[in-house]
Amino acid sequence: MNISKNETAVMDVLNVMDALHIGPHTFNSRLILGTGKFSSTDVMLRAVRASKAELVTVALRRFNREQLEDDLFGPLSQLEGITLMPNTSGASTAAEAVKAAHISRELSGSPFIKVEIHPNPQHLMPDPIETFEAAKILASEGFLVMPYISADPVLAKRLEEVGCASVMPLGAAIGSGRGLSTAGMLEIIIRESTIPVIVDAGLRAPSEAARAMEMGCSAVLVNSAIAAADNPEEMATAFRDGTSAGRRAYMAGLMAESGEAVPTSPLTSFLGESR
């Protein structure tokens, strides 16, 4: 198929018009990558490049400036066109997350902070109370706060009210690969939110990223599904395509699902003819 230069230009304009805005920042990619769990830094960097992600998250606990072989931050900061979003994974209280955010900003210079507070180091579910407290403080200090939360529509609005730049509800538990288990709650969050809604955690397959985007999510964050794949680079590409296909479908307007069955005898015949 031939695509004229004009058509390509139109598509580029559409892409730009459909950019993801978080605070004052604009991203063309709607796939965000997590950087832990990879078999090597090199594999991780290749996956990031293949994904075409422009925003990636890295845990403060994996910053190791004294020992470059063990450091994730240094190599990521060398990548062109990538904005780094440090995260507070390891924090179990608001106080610890705030401290970690301050250190992360100092080390990375990034205005973004992904607030992750999981008091239970086994299942890693986010603590809504501590997350709210930390988000309130950090937003007031000018951070672009990206809180990782359970798919709770009320908490999402409360975080929006205190000035968060986005909300990041989970699709399923971290590393569970259970996909969009929280779909019903995510639909409410998306419908009500005035800030970007980014589905974070639980996605296993690119089709699930597509589904999240079709539902109207602003972006998805993927880590385990790519890092644990046999070929992370290829899987990153597949997630890039899934995310972008889902977004296009959402923008194009999905055909309505087939409606409920129409009963054979009318339900409203008692209303009579007059209007």
Binding site: S39, L60, Q67, D70, G90
Partner: peptide, 11 residues
Amino acid sequence: EPVFKNWDGAY
């Protein structure tokens, strides 16, 4: 991947 630093004094 061997990971030496998987924690931070911040916590």
